[in-house]
Design a protein around this nucleic acid. Structure first.
Lengths: 93, 93
DNA sequence: ACTATATTTGCCCTTTATAGGACAAGTCAA
DNA sequence: TTGACTTGTCCTATAAAGGGCAAATATAGT
């Protein structure tokens, strides 16, 4: 979810991974992994990227947290159910 | 959520933390922390506990995963929103 | 088909964070 | 005061983050 968004934003700006990589001072492989959700995006990187791609960081943050949540429930049989009960608890309690 | 449940189950069985602790071969402080969600419960411990307290592990697992999710979104401003979009993604696509 | 550039994938390494747990000392009720 | 529980600090071990490098794959242009 986050990676796809980052890629889409980058491409809409006509930028190459190289250019983003240069800005963050990392190599392009790392950028590729971020865009493919193979590596988590650090908060500092997220901030720089949002600036670079001209999107408010707050638009990206829910996706960023979402990605972390997905990592947690990945391979968990009761992931969906877990999300539902947490959400419910957040709503009422 | 998990801790509360464990405590409730334990008390309904009339057991003391000491007894659970003995069964898991840890000290009572550790049990206390589990019941107060101060320390995560390992999967092996969860299994033993479910046996000991006579409840199917599958009843506890959603809470167990939920607790991990809560740890992730704790202190995150967009936690709830993140859960919603992840859940949505799980549902449709 | 051949090359050049863009992206992806796999493996490796180091650093930081989290889990797992002991122990001591504290609180709370009976 | 004693037994049950909680809280704080500390330590070690494992897992995850952060990231490089090389090789593999696209993809486009000629």
């Amino acid at each position: 979810m986050l990676g796809e968004k980052l890629k889409e934003l980058r491409e809409s700006k006509g930028l190459l991974q190289r250019q983003v990589a240069a800005e963050l001072d990392v190599d392009t492989a790392y950028i590729s992994k971020m865009e493919n959700n193979d590596k988590p995006v650090s908060k500092e990187h997220l901030k720089k990227i949002s600036t670079l791609l001209g999107v408010p960081e707050n638009d990206l943050l829910p996706l960023w947290v979402g990605e972390k949540v997905k990592r947690v429930i990945k391979n968990e049989k009761f992931g969906k159910q877990a999300l539902e009960i947490v959400l419910k608890e957040l709503s009422n309690g």
